[in-house]
Design a binder for these strands. Structure first.
Lengths: 198, 198
DNA sequence: GCAAGAATCGAACGACCGTTCAATACTTTT
DNA sequence: AAAAGTATTGAACGGTCGTTCGATTCTTGC
């Protein structure tokens, strides 16, 4: 076929995303230049990036989108593999922390950056985020069906709980005194008791 | 005295900080230019800013420092005004949310931006942050003295709890269905039960 | 082998931005 | 009123960065 994309087109694209993720996490989005990403990919020109992405923001939005889709897929699977709602919560928390640790993505930073994008570009990302939150909300409702009576209580409680999970990024150190499994265990135990109290 | 600073020098400085806070919250640090801050202050030249701050980063670090000092002062006072540790936790959470609401500062964004600063400039800010965390840790230890046996447990539990409070920024809407008092109430109740479980 | 589009690259453009500088106006003490 | 230092300003500098362009090379179906 003439004029067809190279077989390794998607691979190259993925390399860009991987290198960009590392650089964004270390230096932030604005302090990372296209030239830097290209160099990290061992390309000799920054114009090379533009063959795979229309602009710099697209690298960011693709990165966040792919990441959230992965999180949702893996968390869904982990949660679906157990029956008891207590076990589901544990699986949810643990799987989130595992992915955060594997990918070393600075989620609060990406989140903040995303919030500055034009509303139209935020839309699909917000939708994925909502999926993630709704997954957690479902588990919380199973754990404590009573709260469904009061309007919005389930949602607010879910958002409060989500903070415990998401904020972990800002302080957790894999080389610290606790493993992610232990932190996940403590978080789960706290949430289990706490969520029953409202 | 010849060559003394004008009486309103500190006022002007504060105006810069206030306008910068608003702009940073809305557009982020990097997308806000010195010229924009100057214009928001009704100054006719961006060089004017440099009479009050040595550079743009100093505006950011001063902003965060002042904010954290205010938070610590107000939260300390609120916590000190009550006796029971349960009341202290409630006061802590409520006061944090009140300040966040009053000042409309995007704390997670400022936090992320601060993390990219040179280590030396981060130091005093990290110290203030630690003060805030330690305040919360003290309350948690009062609530659950048992955890002091296991090393690091109190600190990790504190950090997990702090996530619930700090993440509120990213989702709380004053025009939403719940007031900050109600959210603070729910957060406190959840934490009270949850923290006892570890 | 030729045509057409993909892949890659080097160079340049155009805009913006943080910072500096020199000059002017203002204030206050002596 | 003179001196000295502050307050403010407009203009310019130096650099960076995202993006574009044109050219070249490579791949592949006809």
């Amino acid at each position: 076929m003439v004029g067809v994309r190279a077989k390794d087109h998607d691979d190259k694209r993925q390399i860009i995303l991987d290198q960009a993720a590392t650089l964004f996490a270390r230096q932030g989005f604005h302090k990372t230049s296209i030239a830097q990403i290209a160099k990290a990919c061992k390309a000799s020109s920054k114009a090379w990036i533009y063959h795979y992405f229309p602009n710099k923001e697209a690298v960011l939005t693709t990165l966040i989108t792919d990441f959230l889709e992965l999180v949702i897929a893996r968390v869904s699977e982990a949660v679906g593999a157990v029956e008891a709602p207590q076990k589901k919560l544990q699986a949810f928390v643990l799987e989130c922390m595992r992915i955060y640790d594997e990918y070393r993505i600075n989620y609060p930073m990406l989140f903040a950056e995303m919030s500055l994008l034009p509303a139209e570009e935020q839309k699909p990302i917000r939708a994925l985020e909502r999926q993630w939150v709704m997954l957690l909300r479902g588990i919380i409702l199973e754990l404590n069906p009573g709260i469904s009576n009061r309007r919005h209580h389930a949602m607010v409680l879910t958002l409060i709980a989500s903070g415990s999970v998401n904020w972990t990024y800002t302080w957790f150190d894999p080389k610290g005194p606790m493993s992610q499994e232990e932190v996940a265990e403590m978080t789960t135990r706290m949430l289990l008791k706490g969520l029953a109290a409202v």
